[in-house]
Design a protein around this nucleic acid. Sequence first.
DNA 1: CCTTGTATAGAAAGCGCTTGCTGTGACGCT
DNA 2: AGCGTCACAGCAAGCGCTTTCTATACAAGG
Lengths: 348, 348
Amino acid sequence: MTVTLADVAARAQVSPATVSRVLNGNYPVATSTRERVLKAVDELDYVLNGPASALAAATSDLVGILVNDIADPFFGIMASAIQSEIGGPGGRAGGERLAVVCNTGGSPERELTYLTLLQRQRAAAVVLTGGAMENEPHAAAVASKLRKLTDAGTRVVLCGRPPAPDTAAIALAFDNRGGGQRLTEHLIGLGHRRLGYIAGPEERTTTRHRLEGHRAALAAAGIEEDPRSTMWGRYDRTSGYEATLELLRRDPSLTAVVAANDSVALGACAALRESGLRIPEDVSVAGFDDLPFSVDAVPALTTVRLPLAEAGARAGRIAMGREEPPPGGTATVRGELMVRGSSGVPRG
Amino acid sequence: MTVTLADVAARAQVSPATVSRVLNGNYPVATSTRERVLKAVDELDYVLNGPASALAAATSDLVGILVNDIADPFFGIMASAIQSEIGGPGGRAGGERLAVVCNTGGSPERELTYLTLLQRQRAAAVVLTGGAMENEPHAAAVASKLRKLTDAGTRVVLCGRPPAPDTAAIALAFDNRGGGQRLTEHLIGLGHRRLGYIAGPEERTTTRHRLEGHRAALAAAGIEEDPRSTMWGRYDRTSGYEATLELLRRDPSLTAVVAANDSVALGACAALRESGLRIPEDVSVAGFDDLPFSVDAVPALTTVRLPLAEAGARAGRIAMGREEPPPGGTATVRGELMVRGSSGVPRG
DNA sequence: CCTTGTATAGAAAGCGCTTGCTGTGACGCT
DNA sequence: AGCGTCACAGCAAGCGCTTTCTATACAAGG
């Protein structure tokens, strides 16, 4: 029923081997023969059987991209950039590769299962994006999985994720700590002394690093930190909204709210407005990431811009072996402080 | 070097067939035998060879999800919902399936190539999301591809996309026309007579339908339409920003701007503000989709809420054969008008 | 004219798995 | 005791492709 290589071969009056060679184009085939084969392919509407060729050649053209939340533009932007370099159809790369985006939903098991599935498919490369879980047994399990993948010849790249020790994985880490620090320094420089912090999910590296930066800035300025001024939540607006309300309840004299990311910051803005507070006159707000909508917030969000697209593109190229990995296999990508309308001098 | 089924069989002292059956669990295997096999699998750290089993079984567990722009939450939200129902790891479905998200970037060639790649992989199902291209030869090519896919046993579902005639594809279409119409009716009801419209890319079905709804509302109200009050662009904020500036230049007495989607509307808001106009006192703004950030815009965006997650989930279930397709293979999903602060009675 | 080289095509052996069919004991029935 | 039934397990034939090795043809060199 389905057309096979042999059918094409018969029609073109050549051997299956020749057809295979024409299709893969890495072996000399006379022009006339090639054309005959191509014609037959066309006439029969032949489509190569992926699994069969992957099996025979012991390689596949699948590239996996793991993201924590595909509905979040933070990941969407990286995924898009990675994919364009992977050279999925239309990309600049030659070979047609199927870039597959896998949504872990931030769940450790799903992450592991996807990695296994990718290993099972003998993926050509895997890119893991975003913060890692800090849960120890899980981290070890992931590291071991990554080791197996690289052992099997799969290239592994981490994008926006800290290096995985004892692993051949290339890492392009974001300088979340430094960014967080500069952001809070900016706020302190404006005169803020009572800042609330809305962190992301607790055992995510991204969360921890950003918070550490914040705390380092506070410490450097000699501001003692009230543990009650930090709230934990998810990386979404609702979390920011609720946390801000609680922060306000705990300390009505707050003059600034630093959010784990822009979505959270947006939620914080909503909560402040509903509480009758003006931004930044009464309370300043800062985000992180500088997603596209952040500049449109009112007032525009002060945040740390992460070069998501650039980092993704680079990760993609490295995954395809089209760019040299950074020396030592690890590079840190800095964020840029974007000072906008949502941060200002605190009220007298 | 790599561990194969045969290795496991040898270790467990059974035949390869038995190991296969234990792993696939669809054939009676004595408990003691099963345990022995599982133990061997574990000890050898065996991972099934995906391509080989796909070849032998003539099926694969890949499910493709095509999106126009993965960095756009509109698609991200649908993809996320679809994927959760596909039962990737952790999903409620039993079998582990690899849901792969393919980013077409809105390019016809890429769309086609991805479809071919998916066909090549013998995907179990394919879900196409978002508006289709109206370019005739391309639409025909896609339809023919879809036909081949369904012929080969791949289930094809369209989500947020109009039905594809002469195709076995199930369609869950959004009522973009109706939504657009109700939105503009709302504005007209408030008293607006001079409305600008910022459309999306020209030959996208979504773009056309939304615009048709808008025009139908104008016509019904007896408002004659100035062709110069419609601008074409992309589905992003920059497009909305620039188009609004141009619209204002063409007709400074404009009292409302209807945007093709929420991102565009956000750009429009920015342009209005920079032009010294208040929203909605001077100019009302309306979007479409009701993405998460839209409620946080200031003022909150009047828009049409599309049940992206619900539709995606349903598409996912249908793709997996876990839900009956709608009668006739086609269903229309309505949007809900969300009236918020960005629309008001026009000045003067 | 025969040797050697070069270019191209074919034969055939797998790649690692699934599955229809064929045993083979153990059990229960008459 | 004899035989049909089960419940399992194994055999072996592919699935559709890639690739190594071999064969052929023709051109050029001696």
